[in-house]
Nucleic acid binder design. Structure first.
Lengths: 247, 247
DNA sequence: CGCGAGATTGATCGCCCTCAAGGTAAGTGG
DNA sequence: CCACTTACCTTGAGGGCGATCAATCTCGCG
């Protein structure tokens, strides 16, 4: 079995999930991992296929997508370098719920479930950080469900850019993690629509859109533009149900 | 502190998460739980508020919702009797990501995080089932994200009904877990649209819609109706699959 | 019976998709 | 350096789905 280079494996050791692991466990796990180089855009695994490993992104980006019966593809998440993905599949351990595609060249570490689960079964205190990790992912998806369900294309694009902005106010440049077509799929809209949203955003002075990046002169202005359609009569109160107990 | 009746607490003991717990731990946990009766539709907690406990539904149903900046409410999940909710919040332990509302009368068991986390910190092998539980929820939300992102109103309603159908084919009656307005919010559409979808579904012979239930004479026919979309003018009638079981 | 909440139905409008054409870089070979 | 290629992006015209606004209907209930 081709073992992973120590320097590369160090990146995995530095993740929140593994940094509390004892040396012995890490060495044992490392002996079962292997490097997976993807030379161009290619499919790593497909939704519904048997799952035997999860992955860590060393370089490049991975797109996790799910397709409807009609064939429409929805990108659920974009995985950046330094992140793990498909870890949760191991705890139910059957099949991948999404299709994983590399966006151009990418390099991964493949971590088989078997030795991983063996270790945490004997040292269950190592799962603490994983619960936190899954919890974060759950929150992310809850947010996504709301956005996809009720928010407009303008709002989705604006929120997405704002999420990528550094917290501190002031001009920022957001690097898009993928092509605009893929970004549209990630946002649940069509590329043409994304293009028009960018055009409106730019015309309003809320952003300057480049080929693979977006400049945001004033995040607050973008925020305001993003939420602008809720302006007229937003005072509508949600009716309190009749028998609301105070108890 | 009002302690929980043994018979009610037994329902909590029977959940996948707790059934492997030792007696001592359960008794300790029980002493910190309390019953929460909700006499009518009311808010249990709001999104963003400090989280100190999670809940188990004894009776009634809970709606977990998330609101956009524009005030549009999206019901993320409907919790049925026998289910836990807000458990994952404890592992990151800050604030609830959703608002929890009871749909009519409901009775809950409130389980404070502090004693719960204390127990699993000392007996981390108990977390195994929780990882599986979070993994299931993750899959559910991934599905939801795709549905909200790319699927039509007709498809969302059809899929929802089919998910509630028993696996075995043949006529089925699906009890709606909430009002149609709430169901619309759950599906990310408006009540008027839901009404029209039901009307079309009924006219096509794929379902018979009642006040609080839907009869599905043939799930395969509904499935076919749900997935029709490239066909030009098939909004009128669908043909019955050859071998539709009568059972 | 009158009341009110939920559900239905109709008319109209706007957002977003679809289809189609044109534009704009990057890479290639002459 | 320049046609040519190719992939990606943009722009335009038109249509459909679902939202909005508003009226009517049904049903449970005091």
């Amino acid at each position: 079995m081709m073992q992973i280079d120590d320097a590369l494996f160090q990146r995995l050791r530095d993740t929140p999930i593994f940094k509390s692991w004892p040396e012995a466990a890490l060495l044992h796990l490392q002996s079962h991992c292997r490097a997976v180089p993807l030379r161009g855009a290619s499919i790593l695994f497909s939704a519904g296929s048997q799952a035997s490993a999860f992955y860590f992104v060393l370089s490049g980006r991975m797109l996790l997508s799910s397709s409807s019966a009609a064939g429409h593809e929805k990108i659920v998440e974009i995985i950046q370098p330094g992140q793990l993905f498909a870890l949760a599949v191991g705890f139910l351990g059957r099949r991948y719920p999404v299709t994983a595609t590399s966006e151009g060249r990418a390099e991964l570490i493949e971590i088989p479930f078997a030795p991983f689960l063996g270790i945490i079964k004997e040292q269950p205190e190592l799962t603490w950080q994983m619960l936190a990790d899954l919890s974060i992912r759950l929150n992310f998806l809850i947010n996504e469900v709301r956005r996809m369900g009720v928010e407009s294309a303008d709002t989705r694009v604006g929120q997405y850019l704002l999420d990528l902005c550094p917290q501190h106010a002031g001009p920022a440049r957001v690097e898009l993690p993928c092509t605009k077509a893929a970004l549209a799929a990630r946002l649940g809209i069509k590329p043409e629509t994304l293009s028009r949203v960018f055009a409106r955003m730019q015309q309003a002075g809320a952003a300057v859109v480049g080929r693979r990046h977006v400049d945001i002169p004033c995040p607050e202005a973008l925020q305001q533009w993003t939420n602008r359609q809720s302006e007229p009569d937003n005072r509508r109160r949600i009716k309190q149900p009749a028998g609301c107990p105070r108890s």
